[in-house]
Amino acid sequence: MLVRFWGTRGSLPVAQRAEAIRAKVVRALVAADGRRFASEDEAAAFAQENLDFATYGAFGGATSCVEVEGADEAFMICDMGSGLREFGIDAMRRCAGGHARTYHFFMSHMHWDHIMGFPFFAPAFDANATIVVHSGHADAEEALRRQQEEISFPVPFDWLRATFEFVQHKPGEVVEVDGVEVTLVVQHHSHDSYGYRFARHGRSVIYSTDSEHKLDNMDSEAAFESFFKDADLVICDTMYSLGDSVSLKQDWGHSSNIVAVDLCHAAHAKKLALFHHEPTYSDEDIARMHAETVRYEELVRAERPALEVICAYDGLEVTV
């Protein structure tokens, strides 16, 4: 399977402001230290090798949208955050090259940041497209229709030309979707959210966002350990610090990098992707949080095999 991140930001899309770009350019110039580059390629090679990700790159600001490639023919996408717009454009390109026009969506929940990309999803206007929306919620269709009512958006849902199907699944049941085994787990979040496990050819990917792990609920913790069991990649909501998640932001429905590492350790997962980044965080803040998480994993690893901790960004691809 191949996992492609189209949107990784939590709660609200963000865009880089001029000050942030300026700071990156300034840091790059200082790092170049008077060097001369014969071409842009040479400068790019220097930058790639010598600048950190927060300087030479950016985590991006689109909200949750993650593609899992690996079904027989169809596209599989987790959530419809603002990253979905870019995915839609890329999918149309791939369809022009012969890709099947079937889209399976797996919805964590229907909060605004997870559905806001849908009105801008170009394939919804393709009369030859089939869009299947899988969710644990009974009200997924209502949420998408309501978002396109006249008061919020000029194009009503019924003007969309694709063929739609809404399928509700029960947590714990294994469903086969175009060659991929999919399982849901219910998560603690306002109006509930669902995590997904995608498995094929002995490989597995977990998508678990907008999920709070309560301190005093050990049964739920055991349930997540078994849901994450031996996963090759776990994409996890790590929006807050543990300190915030048990004090000021308790019951806000999100988790921390610390709990994500501990759950992955207990589940013997192989790789953890930090996800649903706090919108007030700059690229430096996210990079620092990533470095701290890598360090925490080292500090508490003990005799376990290393858990690789990566930080999701818009555009990242991970082969599983």
Binding site: S241, L242, G243, I258, R295, Y296, L299
Partner: peptide, 12 residues
């Protein structure tokens, strides 16, 4: 000390 700082428990 590092764990308390990374978890922000040094603020609690």
């Amino acid at each position: 000390r590092e764990i308390l700082a990374i978890s922000r428990y040094d603020k609690l």
